[in-house]
């Protein structure tokens, strides 16, 4: 079973580049509402955002929506006055659209973070620069090591009587000392790592970058489909008119606008479609076992 998460990382990267680009660069209310809906759906189904995350997004949405009418007073239709400043319908609607854009982008990014594990990030960097991928991989290992060691040094020093007074200054000074030991120890031992690298051929010539990921037929198919849908959605956005200030002019429901929105709807739910299809196929396969 090849779920969206198991596809080549380039596909996932390209996909999120497309949806994020369409979401961030457009201010089309139609596309943005579709984007918001599909991003929330994606985030829930991928398990990228849980209870508290949704609450945070809601608060962010509200704040982002409120800021614009409170600061920007352009627009013809005045709704009411607040502190002697006009609050206009246009500014309110713009604020809502911008808030939708920001919220949707954040939901997409959460999905991206969930799907793009460190392995996949490394794979993509390895394509550009094997050396950089190695540097990233080494840093990731050192992060884990530092975490383990921090704990160990903290314990050791405590048991040897480092934290005597139990006040804040003592705690801070102790932390700084522990950090200092941590750095010294890690740098010192790092030389062994460097020797191990040299012993195993580092710097003997050009590196290659290995990864278990390969391009399957489905990956090759995915990329043009994704690009095609994006292209249609872009044309749809260009052909529709969205003007907020000073007077709202919206023309969303022409042929291209509808086509573009439809393309975006498919694009936004593409990973879900793939996973549903794979799940169905899996059921069929299992029944044969």
């Amino acid at each position: 079973m090849r779920r969206f998460e198991d596809m080549n990382p380039l596909c996932a990267a390209f996909y999120y580049l497309c949806v994020l680009g369409l979401t961030m660069f457009g201010m089309n209310p139609l596309t943005l509402s579709l984007s918001l809906l599909s991003s929330i759906l994606s985030a829930v189904l991928f398990g990228a955002v849980k209870g508290r995350g949704h609450a945070f997004s809601l608060i962010l949405f509200l704040i982002a929506a409120l800021i614009n009418p409170l600061i920007v007073h352009n627009g013809m239709t005045v709704l009411f006055y607040f502190n002697d400043n006009p609050i206009t319908l246009e500014a309110v609607l713009y604020g809502l659209t911008a808030a939708g854009m920001i919220t949707a982008s954040l939901y997409w990014l959460r999905c991206l973070s969930k799907v793009m594990t460190s392995d996949k990030v490394l794979y993509i960097f390895g394509r550009f620069s094997p050396k950089l991928a190695l540097l990233l991989s080494m840093s990731l290992r050192f992060i884990e090591l530092l975490r383990v060691r921090w704990r160990k040094i903290q314990d050791t020093q405590k048991a040897l009587g480092l934290y005597r007074d139990g006040n804040l200054i003592d705690a801070l000074r102790g932390r700084a000392r522990v950090l200092s030991v941590l750095i010294g120890w890690t740098l010192e031992n790092g030389i062994v790592t460097a020797e191990s690298m040299e012993g195993r051929g580092y710097g003997s010539g050009r590196r290659t970058s290995y990864s278990a990921y390969r391009m399957h037929l489905s990956d090759w198919l995915f990329l043009p489909v994704c690009a095609g849908l994006t292209a249609v959605a872009v044309v749809g956005q260009v052909r529709s008119t969205v003007v907020f200030y000073p007077d709202m002019q919206m023309e969303l429901w022409n042929l291209w606008g509808i086509l573009g929105a439809a393309a975006f709807a498919v694009l936004g739910t593409l990973p879900l479609i793939i996973n549903a299809k794979e799940a169905l196929r899996w059921r069929g396969l299992l029944s044969k076992v």
Binding site: M138, S139, R141
Partner: peptide, 10 residues
């Protein structure tokens, strides 16, 4: 490389 990686990790 190693030292840069360590400092990045830090």
């Amino acid at each position: 490389m190693v030292i840069t990686a360590i400092m990045t990790a830090l």
